[in-house]
Design a protein around this nucleic acid. Structure first.
Length: 769
RNA sequence: GCCCAGGUGACGAAACCGGUAAACGUACUUGACUUAAAAUCAAGCGCCGAAAGGCAUGCGGGUUCGAGUCCCGCCCUGGGCACCA
């Protein structure tokens, strides 16, 4: 027998699968489809690190099992290749991003093939390829034509380091999500996608899909629906003078507390508006307003102490006509709700803190009101429209031109798509906030496709979220140059049956791509409303010491090295064995050893294989238990326990002199999703001519998973004192009798009668003294 | 502050409905094989104790014949949201 040599075997089978097109799928209405999806990687210059294979291997295991269960499995791969790191690299080195991307994709492809993933490579997509982004542009124009894309001058989040505008979703604690630099507010014209118009659909759709709860909750929080009332408080701008012109509208989720309101608090932003339309505030108040507004812009890290000034305005509580003062405060925010609240110190901690500081009255006991009487019921969302333009080079050009005679923005006709990125000399973005494309006069100045007159191109590009917002649709029909994907193929493959990805993409990518899909469904271009039937998430693989792996810390484990030393099958199986799939785990080189030993044992077992052995009842039970557990555990993503059960089985098999070929075959089948190369080789060694990939998944017999002899523990007052062996079908009375007869039990009883004897079937006897 | 995970040997972890806590793997100890090492195989491996036995799943209570698992009150770690009215 040859020694297990992963290097040779793995290359051999990778070639076999490629030349036999083993994993290429075609639409086949006679077969039930299964669409499994991973988040396609960004092809960075560093290549794969050992964290990537966790989700990839998991979905590969699932895909391989589904194939063996007879499903027509689509398991595609592609590259999300637009993005800042490549552009920054281009700025540093002067190399064209398209060339760098090509090189990086080649390296990623090599590494992914090295790991033996069962991707259908024929459907590979690349978001920075004009053949792909032609359709990203085309889809953007659908938003534009349905008035869901609009340009707006507004303060945006500006990262001074990356020199780029950010979507709200990309700002974390007031800092750039990517580089951690505090963001500034800048006024800029930006393309926006009106995702807020889909807030209710995005929220409602979550009820019809099977998402891991953390993901669902995070999406719900982000959409942030709150139901409440808008209540109008009439104002007297000058106390004592009647005034029927002025009022302030407050938003509250607790309109029932209106009788407890002792003041009205307004934001500095709203107060500023009042000043702008002629409110005669004194200088101190004006200065206070300016101070708050200036301070808001700069720091956001800590919650400042609550401050306020009395405005000298009286508000009238519409519920009881009581006069209460109006305060201008820093703890009410202009962009939230109506920018004004009613202060109810008895029911709101923040109002209470404020009232105590400024000695405002607190009404402890008051009648809770009915809400219909005092306000208009409204529903608010935290969700804001999506800032969809970036002032950078390496992204999809926005296919619009500005034509003054035609009255503004004119879309390019489909025949002019793709609007390709021109080659530029300098990739450096500018401090003025314009993309490098703006400097290319030849490209910028063009003809209006509508009137033929001179017009200017949009020079901003799309955010890196654009391409990933619909890639799962393209996989259904990756090479179609007439449509983004044919209806027929979308109907066959959609929705994605199982999508696994990182928690970090749950608010951004998942929300955006659901938005695109729901919109496309609404206009009749996609057959299903929700793109993903099921969404799971993996935990991170951390470096030793619990830190994230990063190039700068020098703690990145490269899969190339692991594969060179142990082979891909060992790496795959170890990554699945490390710990619970949804939790973070620390990488440990030592752990690879145990898995390698396990695979060696499986390899060595082939020596013991004979066509048929006598029935070995114990081994039969173990085999059926293992088949059951591995199948169930894969479905539940409990890969670690699936593997440990197979280890137990293999340990048992290793103790036998001879091993029946059908037992060994069953083992190879259930192990094959984890260690596909080695099991293919062993399967061939058994004399089989066809690939293991499409062999049927073994079935277990529930009757045969039951043990014939059981060990029963005997507890006395809750403590285990003895155990007895019984036949599985022993009657309850008999078991109790046997238990009481035990020598140790007799000793503990000291001749007394037990108060109570409880038998838990197949587990234990509990005796109470 | 609110929401969601989680806390178990030296380490990664199991224990699915309340039923023998620590399966599986690593590390370690001893032995076999070997001139030797590696590899492999065998035995051991929570803590205290000579043993009988006692103590053990972050801490303190409770329910139960029986609690890692359920209930009450805390502490710690990770993630999300956050003056959101």
């Amino acid at each position: 027998m040859k020694k297990y040599n992963p290097k040779k075997i793995e290359k051999k089978w990778q070639k076999y699968w490629e030349s036999h097109k083993t994993f290429q799928v075609k639409e086949d209405v006679k077969k039930e489809k299964f669409y499994s999806l991973i988040e396609f990687p960004y092809p960075s210059g560093e290549g794969l690190h050992v964290g990537h294979p966790r989700p990839f291997t998991a979905m590969d295991v699932i895909s391989r099992k589904k194939r063996m269960e007879g499903k027509n499995v689509l398991f595609p791969i592609g590259f999300d290749s637009f993005g800042l790191p490549t552009e920054n690299y281009a700025i540093k080195t002067g190399k064209a991003p398209a060339e760098v991307t090509k090189k990086n994709i080649a390296n990623f492809t090599r590494q992914l093939k090295m790991l033996g993933y069962s991707f259908d490579w024929s459907r590979q997509v690349d978001t920075s390829n004009p053949k792909y982004y032609k359709w990203t542009q085309w889809l953007f124009l659908q938003f534009f034509k349905h008035d869901l894309a609009y340009k707006k001058n507004q303060p945006i989040n500006w990262c001074p380091k990356d020199k780029i505008g950010l979507a709200n979703e990309e700002v974390v604690n007031g800092c750039c999500e990517r580089c951690g630099t505090p963001v500034e507010k800048r006024n800029k014209e930006q393309w926006m996608l009106a995702i807020t118009k889909y807030a209710d659909k995005l929220l409602a759709g979550l009820q019809n899909v099977d998402y891991i709860e953390r993901a669902r909750v995070q999406q719900e929080n982000w959409i942030g629906k709150s139901e409440g009332a808008e209540i109008v408080f009439p104002l007297r701008m000058i106390p004592g003078q009647s005034d029927d012109k002025h009022s302030v509208t407050v938003f509250t989720t607790r309109p029932d507390t209106i009788f407890g309101a002792t003041f009205v608090a307004v934001s500095a932003e709203l107060a500023k508006k009042w000043v702008d339309v002629g409110w005669q505030a004194n200088e101190d108040i004006k200065k206070y307003i300016e101070d708050i507004l200036a301070h808001r812009k700069s720091s956001r890290e800590e919650e400042p102490e609550k401050t306020g000034v009395e405005a000298g305005i009286v508000a009238i509580n519409p519920a009881n006509q009581k006069e209460i003062p109006v305060w201008i405060t820093n703890y009410v925010l202009g962009e939230v709700g109506t920018g004004a609240i009613m202060g109810v110190p008895a029911d709101d901690d923040r109002d209470k803190e404020f009232a105590e500081k400024y000695n405002l009255p607190i009404i402890e006991n008051y009648t809770k009101a009915g809400f219909e009487d005092h306000g208009k019921r409204v529903i608010r969302y935290k969700l804001r429209d999506w800032v969809f333009s970036r002032q950078r080079y390496w992204g999809e050009p926005i296919p619009l031109v500005n034509c003054v005679p035609c009255g503004g923005w004119v879309p390019l006709p489909e025949s002019e798509l793709p609007l390709e990125l021109p080659k530029v000399k300098k990739y450096q973005p500018t401090d003025t906030g314009e993309s490098p494309l703006a400097a290319m006069e030849k490209w910028v100045n063009t003809k209006c496709p509508q009137c033929g007159g001179p017009a200017k191109r949009e020079t901003d590009t799309m955010p890196n979220w654009a391409g990933s917002s619909w890639y799962f649709l393209r996989y259904a029909d990756a090479h179609n140059d007439k449509e983004f994907a044919s209806q027929e193929k979308l109907k066959y493959w959609m929705p994605v049956d199982w999508y696994n990805g990182g928690m970090e993409h749950v608010v951004l990518h998942l929300l955006y791509s659901r938005f695109w899909n729901i919109f496309l469904h609404d206009i009749g271009l996609v057959p299903v409303s929700e793109p993903y039937a099921k969404r799971t998430a993996h935990g991170l693989i951390l470096a030793k010491g619990g830190e994230k792996m990063s190039k700068s810390k020098g703690n990145v484990v490269n899969p190339d090295e692991v594969v060179a030393q142990y082979g891909a099958d060992t790496l795959r199986t170890y990554i699945m064995f490390m710990g619970p799939f949804d939790q973070a785990v620390e990488w440990d080189d030592n752990g690879l050893v145990g898995v390698k030993r396990f695979l060696d044992k499986v390899w060595n077992l082939q020596e013991k294989v004979v066509p048929k052995t006598e029935l070995n009842l114990k081994l039969q039970t173990s085999l059926h238990q293992t088949i059951q557990k591995v199948g169930e555990d894969i479905e539940g993503m409990r890969f670690n326990t699936a593997i440990s059960k197979m280890m137990e089985l293999v340990n048992e098999m290793s103790k036998e002199e001879k091993l029946s070929a059908d037992y060994y075959s069953a083992l190879l089948k259930i192990l094959s999703p984890f260690a596909p190369h080695m099991t293919e080789e062993l399967w061939g060694n058994l004399g089989n001519k066809k690939t293991l990939v499409y062999q049927s998944w073994p079935e277990y017999n529930p009757e045969l998973t039951k043990e014939s002899t059981l060990t029963i523990a005997i507890q006395i007052n809750g403590k285990v004192r003895d155990e007895i062996m019984i036949d599985a079908d022993t009657a309850e009375d008999e078991v109790k009798k046997l238990a009481l007869a035990s020598e140790k039990v007799q000793k503990w009883l000291e001749g007394k009668e037990p108060k109570k004897v409880i038998y838990v079937k197949g587990k234990l006897v509990s005796i109470v003294i």
